[in-house]
Design a protein around this nucleic acid. Structure first.
Length: 433
DNA sequence: TCTGGGGTCCTAGGACCC
DNA sequence: TCTGGGGTCCTAGGACCC
């Protein structure tokens, strides 16, 4: 028997500590050891905290106005966010990581998954950590596991026990992984938020270990493919692959809150024009065209005493475009359709969706009638070529739904009884067999 | 009074086509 | 005996993430 972990590939999650605060510190070393926070776009919320700020009890995402007292009392250093700086620092960190490992997925501005070579040790991870710190000034934590979810979990442990672990934790070679999981609440898992944690609790599951050992059918029924996937990942069965090439963007949004509420159509139009211009500029920069636009309005959801109205409307564009003027007049029309006087609006925004690349877009294709494909015939043909017709290699999947309380319902019995939304469950076709 | 912005994925259900 | 059924596309909404 091969010991688990020896033969399997391992994934590391590298996560920058308190990234935005750490960036500010790089350019102002006097902030070292002092409480620091970085604010969201309109200086509304606290979105990054140094360890010292966390120790003062300042919560993540807290509105600034609620923290003024503790800020004044302890001399917390407060910064507006500077995304240009953070993006630049992020690129430096990622380029160092890229040099050290064969495969990397940049997951967010401050995180990356690494595909590790089999001879990569915990000591190598420490060296990597030291190198990033030395060259960029950014401290990171590294967690190692056999799946992305486990790497995340290992990273969480590394962060929580930074003094003992030195910012690195290898769950794969740790003697008691179940002990770690038993000490991890479900909402500490990547992908489990408040609501899913509650749902799990309803099933008597409160820790990562209980989740790992739960009844797969029950999880599938209650949480769908997402739950099933997480459970498999917890058990060391990879379901989430390393994505070295980021997939194409599906949509681009531009929105802002107003400093003080806005009531007139004209003010909304002006703000929206701004957002459309930003969004259009962004898709042009990526060489994309939009085929669909959505516009929305929001009243202040925190003001329970005021009437709420939060409409949104979408439209499929006549033709793919990224021209600001064109998009602007469409946005204006949409705004007019949803605007109602008498409300105090707090936010508006636009989303450009259904993005297609300029290069691949060929207008003449739109005029062609769609080719019809006879799927049954193709399936028969593949089975005929690949094997015994009485024992088909593939069957045609059909569509069905999960009915709450009633289990699985096929829309048709005519095709495969093995319908699944998870392609990994489909039979594998081997060439040459 | 003040309380971010930008994303992804999954599911359900309706319109529509043949 | 009988009321069609399969499939795609679109949209809305929920949940989560950083």
């Amino acid at each position: 028997m091969i010991a688990r972990g020896e033969s399997e590939s391992r994934i590391a999650l590298v996560d920058c500590n308190n990234f935005f605060c750490s960036c500010e510190r790089v350019f102002n070393p006097a902030l070292q050891g002092k409480p620091v926070v970085v604010l969201s776009n309109n200086d509304g919320c606290i979105i990054s905290r140094s360890e010292e700020a966390k120790a003062l009890g300042i919560p993540m995402g807290a509105p600034l106005h609620g923290q003024q007292e503790v800020i004044r009392k302890h001399g917390v250093h407060v910064f507006s966010s500077n995304y240009t700086l953070y993006g630049d620092m992020s690129a430096r960190v990622m380029s160092i990581l890229r040099e050290e490992v064969p495969a990397i997925e940049v997951y967010s501005i401050d995180e990356a998954f690494l595909g590790l070579p089999s001879n990569f040790t915990e000591e190598n991870a420490r060296t990597l950590r030291a190198k990033v710190l030395q060259w960029t000034g950014i401290p990171v934590c590294i967690g190692i596991g056999t799946t992305k979810l486990l790497a995340k979990l290992a990273n969480r442990h590394a962060k929580k026990n930074r003094e003992i672990k030195g910012g690195v934790f290898d769950l794969v070679h740790y003697p008691d992984p179940d002990g770690i999981m038993a000490a991890t609440p479900t909402d500490g898992l990547w992908g489990v938020g408040k609501n899913l944690a509650l749902r799990l609790k309803g099933m008597g599951i409160t820790t990562a270990l209980e989740f790992k050992q739960a009844d797969p059918a029950a999880i599938r029924k209650s949480m769908g493919v997402i739950g099933e996937r997480m459970m498999r990942e917890l058990n060391g069965i990879p379901c989430l692959e390393l994505e070295e090439m980021p997939p194409d963007k599906k949509g681009v949004m531009a929105s802002r809150s107003f400093g003080s509420p806005v009531e007139t159509l004209q003010e909304l139009e002006e703000a929206l024009a701004n957002h459309v211009a930003r969004a259009a500029e962004k898709i042009r920069r990526h060489g994309l065209l939009s085929t669909r636009m959505e516009v929305f309005l929001r009243t202040n959801r925190f003001r329970k005493d005021q009437p709420q109205y939060s409409p949104g409307i979408g439209i499929t564009l006549d033709r793919p475009t990224n021209a600001t003027g064109e998009l602007m007049s469409t946005a204006r029309e949409l705004l007019h359709r949803i605007y109602r006087p008498g409300y105090r609006y707090k936010k508006t925004g636009v989303q450009l969706a259904g993005l297609v690349s300029e290069e691949e877009y060929q207008p003449e294709l739109l005029d062609q009638p769609r080719a019809r494909i006879d799927v049954d015939r193709i399936v028969d043909e593949i089975n005929r070529r690949l094997g015994d017709p009485k024992n088909p290699v593939i069957t045609r999947a059909s569509q069905g739904t999960i009915q709450s309380g009633k289990g699985w319902r096929m829309r048709s019995e005519r095709h495969s009884p093995h319908y699944t939304t998870d392609w990994k469950q489909l039979p594998v076709v081997r060439s040459g067999s």
